[in-house]
Structure formats: structure tokens, C-alpha cells
Design a protein around this nucleic acid. Sequence first.
DNA 1: TCGAATGTTTGACGAGCGTCCAACTGTTGC
DNA 2: GCAACAGTTGGACGCTCGTCAAACATTCGA
Lengths: 107, 107
Amino acid sequence: MSDTERLPQPATADIDLVTVLHALGDPVRMTLLLSYADGAEHSCDPHGLGLDHLHKSTVSHHMRVLREAGVTTTRVAGRNRFVSLRRTDLDARFPGLLDALLPAAAS
Amino acid sequence: MSDTERLPQPATADIDLVTVLHALGDPVRMTLLLSYADGAEHSCDPHGLGLDHLHKSTVSHHMRVLREAGVTTTRVAGRNRFVSLRRTDLDARFPGLLDALLPAAAS
DNA sequence: TCGAATGTTTGACGAGCGTCCAACTGTTGC
DNA sequence: GCAACAGTTGGACGCTCGTCAAACATTCGA
């Protein structure tokens, strides 16, 4: 479902550019962003992203930073949380930003 | 002159995206970036940018961060330093990034 | 030559960040 | 029920960051 419960996140109009850049100015969170770039929903398990060395609470912290900055949205479904990129909201708020950022980060 | 002495800065190929985003993820440095967006050279005096409350050593520190991240270049001319945006280098390294960032930051 | 001007550097301080660990909440399945 | 699962929260630790103040270096002008 698309309209189950969601964790708190800023409204689209309240997404702040400096806050977003600060959130993305960290190698771990940039890695997460790249994995979310496919538009799909992802669990909080960072297995296979090269983040296996991090404690799960550390990954949880980084995901919270991304969500509170407005970069991602988190849908709660049972004991799982599904994280995905707020592509539409970000494109509306900062046109062209993700289109420039994602290829630059992937290389 | 355009080829007087310059302060140390990373080569274009060595500019790192996460480092750039980290540099820009600060309100003071974002203000500086916006003032450099006109492409002109600027002295280190932040007068008129709404940064008058900051100590000059603090501004100097922020300018160093921007330069070491590869965002700006600093030309030394006598007792003045002229700072300007590395627009061409950044466009080559991260196509479209400044074009998305500057309008988003200005609003 | 001497003083003013323009920035940088160093050290200090408090605040925030990234990380881990342990304990906790809520959910699913047996 | 109860144990395993998925993830969050709180505290603790060291490190980095933003800021200021004072001292310094260099250059220009009188």
C-alpha cells in the first residue's frame, strides 16, 4: 500500500536546501542515496551496500537524518520500514538537483 | 591579471562531490556561494552579505573550506585576495549541478 | 620609515556529529 | 505465550566544526 503510516518528515515546501546538502555531505548517506536512486522501496538493512561494517543503530541514525532533511520517506509496515527517495517532491522543490547529483555521485 | 599566484586548490579531477556538498551544507558558506554566483572576483570582505556579525577570521576559515573543496579559487594580488567561483571546473566535473544549485539557493 | 590595511594562523572553547553498545518497542510466527 | 525479528532510542566516547580573540605576515600609502 502507498498510504500506510509514515514516519515524520518535512512538508515539501519546508525542505531546506542547506539542510539537504548537509545531509548529503556524508559518505555513508551518499551511499544510501545512491541505493535509493532506483526509485524502489528499501528495507533498513544495508547489506550489500558496502555498509556492513556499520552498526545497525548507526545506519538507523543516518536514515533519520535523510528523512528529517526531506530526502527520503519512510513507510511503516509491520515490523519493517520501507525507505524510498522523495523524487517527486525534491524535483518540485529543487528542479534539476537530483538529475545532476545522482550521475555525479555514481561516478 | 589572470595568472598571478593562486592559493592551493584541488585539481579539477580531484574535486569530490561529498566534500563539495559538505562545504555547501553550511548557511554561511551558502551565502558566500550565492555572492560568487555572478562570476566576478570578490575580496574577502563580507560587507553587505549579511555576514557582518562574523569575525573576519571566521570568514577566512569558511573561504578556506570552499577553496579546499574545489568550489572557489583565490588569486593573490598584493595585500588583497580575490575569490571567484570555479564555474568551468565544476561544470566539467559535475554537469548541471551549479545550474540546479544556484537558483534553488537564491529562492 | 612607519603606520594602516588586508587577510591568515594559532589556540581555545562549546556544540554537534558519527559511532558503538545495550536496552527497549513493536511485530511475526510457532 | 514466547522467542526470534526489525528497527529505534538513550547514553557514552572521541572527533570535527563553527566561532572568537589575539598574534602574525605582508603590502600599500603617506
